[in-house]
Design a protein around this nucleic acid. Structure first.
Lengths: 203, 203
DNA sequence: TAGAATATTAAACAGTGTTTAATTAATTTT
DNA sequence: AAAATTAATTAAACACTGTTTAATATTCTA
């Protein structure tokens, strides 16, 4: 046996090839401006073949979406060695912002683009799996901070959402080119400086 | 005379009609999913006519974009009666968030959507006119706050960008449906609660 | 009323995502 | 090994998209 396994593997291979080509093009020219024919051209197959491996364009998008979360999750792994929850929260923010600035198109894919496709699989549960996990670890860090006396008078859920909003706001305004209100001389550092200002506020 | 004026007015009228139809459709089904033929159908004209009044689809988008900033600007007018700059900053945030939540599609148009069209007119200056004015009044309020001793150790530009990021983050995560990580029971109020948490942090 | 200018349209172009039926290639069965 | 079956792949079509063109209808001017 193993024959059907090999067949399976070979099928996976073309699927990987499609995904890789799609990723390159998506991050190069954007999702909307990448056509199925573009992807097909790049892998030197006919457009139709893509539909044997993916239901539609959205499913390709979704696959890359998950890839992005895996990559971000891996970068977050080092957090486990940081004992102080406030310190951990800050490093978390730094990593998040760094990821977004280094992979703006992937970040766009993950957090900015319209997302009628996240609950493709569990549409009944009304939940967003990848994001839910990431948000949970943020909330837990904040709960730990509260337990240690940081942020008196605050409450974890709203605080967590607010913290996430700060980092998301910082990077998404930049990615979607709303930073042009800032002096050219300061524009390239404004995201990091904004993050520092927030940390200063946190204490 | 006045004849050419009337002609001018009549021309403006159809332009207004197109704009109104486009606005309805854009806010109803989104910009991308509204076609020129959709707009033409709605006003009972042929698609081609639109190109006699607008260069292309982007120019329609841009016109609505400006409309949105005018509306937001008007809502901000009451700020002038608030003396205390910190209080003014908070009300500013409240108005901003309220506007975004009441006009999510317009907000999307103004602050989230890809914007290769903002510097359509002054591409050389690399500036974003409408946004620049709004950001300036935010920065001035913060400068006033700094002068009165609020936010010691902070600096206006980065602080202003951070404050803007908070409100933008709060509403844009909600508009782009990333709030599904939040408990359903709290989801509808999380934006306001996040804003309150930020104000609490400001002092 | 004839001629010029303008407003409006129908038709076409090149592109899109997706589906279909036909074709080629590989595998299994006889 | 040859025939039958199954899977992989394609070419062609469908109904759309934004935009341009040349032709038509309308209005204004002289």
């Amino acid at each position: 046996m193993g024959i059907t396994d090999r067949k399976e593997r070979e099928k996976e291979e073309l699927k990987e090839t499609i995904l890789k080509a799609a990723k390159t093009l998506f991050l190069e020219k954007g999702v909307e401006k990448t056509s199925m024919r573009n992807i097909a051209d790049r892998i030197e197959y006919s457009p139709g073949i893509i539909y044997h491996y993916f239901k539609d364009k959205n499913e390709i998008f979704h696959a890359l979406h998950q890839e992005g979360f895996k990559a971000l999750g891996e970068k977050m792994e080092i957090l486990s060695v940081i004992r102080d929850p406030l310190e951990r929260l800050k490093v978390m923010g730094k990593i998040y912002v760094k990821f977004a600035m280094e992979n703006p198109d992937m970040y766009d894919l993950m957090f900015i683009k319209e997302a009628p496709l996240c609950h493709v699989f569990d549409s009944e549960k009304e939940e967003w799996i990848e994001g839910g996990g990431a948000f949970n670890s943020l909330r837990m860090t904040i709960e730990e901070s509260l337990a240690q006396g940081y942020f008196p008078g605050h409450e974890s859920e709203s605080l967590a959402y607010m913290v996430w909003s700060v980092v998301h706001g910082l990077v998404s305004l930049h990615i979607r080119k709303r930073c042009e209100v800032i002096d050219l001389t300061r524009r390239e550092n404004i995201v990091d400086e904004g993050l520092d200002a927030f940390f200063k506020l946190l204490g």
